[in-house]
Design a protein around this nucleic acid. Structure first.
Lengths: 217, 217
DNA sequence: GCACTTATCTGAACGGTGTCAAGATAATCT
DNA sequence: AGATTATCTTGACACCGTTCAGATAAGTGC
C-alpha cells in the first residue's frame, strides 16, 4: 500500500507518524516565521506548512488562529519576565531595580518587535494581564516589589497599584515608540539605543520621584 | 439599453455617474466600518461595499489597501492635533498645558481605540512622524511649546527633544494600556476613567518635574 | 455638434487565507 | 484482536487583496 511507504518516509524524517508534539512544533514554527518573515506572513497555513503538516492539522491543538498566536505570545511573556528577573538581579543597588527593569523591558521589545506586538495584542482582549500578572515572579509583581524597595508604602494599595501601572505604561510606551526611525539620529548622538532608552525612561522619572520622596522622609 | 436605467437609478441615489468624490467616500466608509465592526472587519472589499462600489474601484484612488488605511489614519492624526489644540487652549495656567495635552491625547485614543491603533500602525513604518510632526500646530510641536512654557530651556535642543519624546511615549503608553479590562475596578474606585488617566499621567510626572525644576531656579 | 483622449468604474479571474466536515490512519484501551 | 479515541489529510467554502480587459462617463479640441 502507498501509505506504508509514506509512513516510512515520514519516519525517516525523524518525525513520528502522528508527529509527536505538534502543538509545540506549531508554536515554534510560528515564532520562526514571525522572526524571519514578519507578522504579515504569520498565517495559520504558513505555520502548518513550516511544521510540515496540513492546513487543518492545527485545529486539533488550537481552537483558532487566535488561540495559536496567543500561545506564541504567552511564551513571549514568560521570556520577558525571565529577562526582567535577570535585570533586577543584576542591579546591585535595589534603588536601581526599577530603571533596570524598564531598560530590560524595552530592550526585549526592541529585540523582538514583532513578538512584542503580538504579546500586546493578545493581552488587549483578555480580562486579566498576561496570565502570570498575579504571582510574584511575574513582571507586574517584580515592578511592584521594586517600587516598594524604592520607598512606596506597601500598605497604600491604591498608590502602589497606580505606581505599578504607571511604570508599566511608561515601559510600554517607550518600547513601542523607540522603534520610530525618526529617532535614529538622536540615538546615534547619544551613543546607541540603550542610552537613549535610559534617558527617556529617566525623563519619565518614576524612580527619581520615589527616591526623592524617600530621601525627603 | 440596460445601463441607461442603471445610470438613472444611481443618479436617483444622489450619486453621480462616476460617484463624484470616491476617494473621500472610501475614507469615510473605512472609518465607519472601523467604528462599527472593528479593525478585523476593515477589508478593502468591505470598504468598497460600504461605499457602494466594486472591489476594484478603490485602486483608482489608492495604490494599496495600506494606502487607504493610511489616509484614514492621517485624518485621525489631524483630529487628534485639533483635540490637543483645544485642550491646551482651555488650560488657563500654561503650566497645566502639558497635563491637559496628555489627558486629551489619551482620551482621544480611548474614544477611538481602533482608529488610534491604526494611526500608530501607520506611523510605525514611516520615516517621519505622522507627516505634520514638524510644524508648530502639530501634536509634537504643541508638546514642545508646552514644555518650554513649563521651564525647559529652549536652547538645549537635546533636552527639549528628549523631554518631548518622553512625553509622547508616556501618552502613548497610557493611551494603549488604559483599555485593559483589569483596570476597570480601579477606575470605578477613582470616579471614572479620566481621573484614572490623570493619576497615571501624573505619576509619569513630566509636568511635576519641570515645574519643580523651574521652582527651584 | 462630433471624434478622441482620459479618468473612472465593473466583471471576472488568480492565488492566498481561515475554517470546517468527512474520511483515513495511528495510538490506546479492554 | 477488536473497538475506541486522538490525530492528521483531503477537499471544499467563503472571503480576502490584487490585477486586467472592457464598459462607461467626463473632458478636450475641432
Amino acid at each position: 500500500m502507498a501509505h506504508a511507504d509514506l509512513t516510512r518516509d515520514i519516519a525517516q524524517d525523524g518525525r513520528p507518524y502522528h508527529h509527536g508534539d505538534l502543538s509545540r512544533a506549531l508554536v515554534l514554527a510560528g515564532r520562526r516565521i514571525l522572526e524571519k518573515e514578519g507578522p504579515a506572513a504569520l498565517s495559520l497555513r504558513a505555520v502548518a506548512r513550516e511544521a510540515g503538516v496540513s492546513p487543518a492539522a492545527p485545529y486539533h491543538h488550537f481552537k483558532d488562529k487566535c488561540d495559536l498566536i496567543a500561545a506564541v505570545a504567552s511564551e513571549g511573556w514568560q521570556e520577558l519576565s525571565v529577562a526582567i528577573l535577570e535585570a533586577r538581579a543584576k542591579a546591585s543597588d535595589p534603588r536601581h531595580g526599577l530603571s533596570e527593569i524598564g531598560v530590560a523591558y524595552v530592550c526585549f521589545a526592541r529585540q523582538n518587535p514583532a513578538l512584542y506586538r503580538l504579546m500586546y495584542d493578545s493581552a488587549c482582549d483578555r480580562e486579566d494581564m498576561p496570565e502570570h500578572a498575579k504571582d510574584e515572579s511575574s513582571g507586574y509583581g517584580q515592578v511592584r516589589e521594586a517600587l516598594i524597595s524604592v520607598g512606596v508604602d506597601p500598605n497604600d494599595h491604591r498608590e502602589l497599584r497606580l505606581a505599578t501601572i504607571a511604570a508599566w505604561c511608561a515601559a510600554h510606551g517607550v518600547a513601542e515608540m523607540a522603534g520610530f526611525k525618526e529617532f535614529e539620529g538622536l540615538k546615534e548622538e547619544m551613543g546607541g539605543e540603550v542610552p537613549f532608552i535610559r534617558a527617556i525612561l529617566d525623563h519619565l522619572g518614576i524612580y527619581a520621584r520615589h527616591a526623592r520622596a524617600r530621601h525627603d522622609a
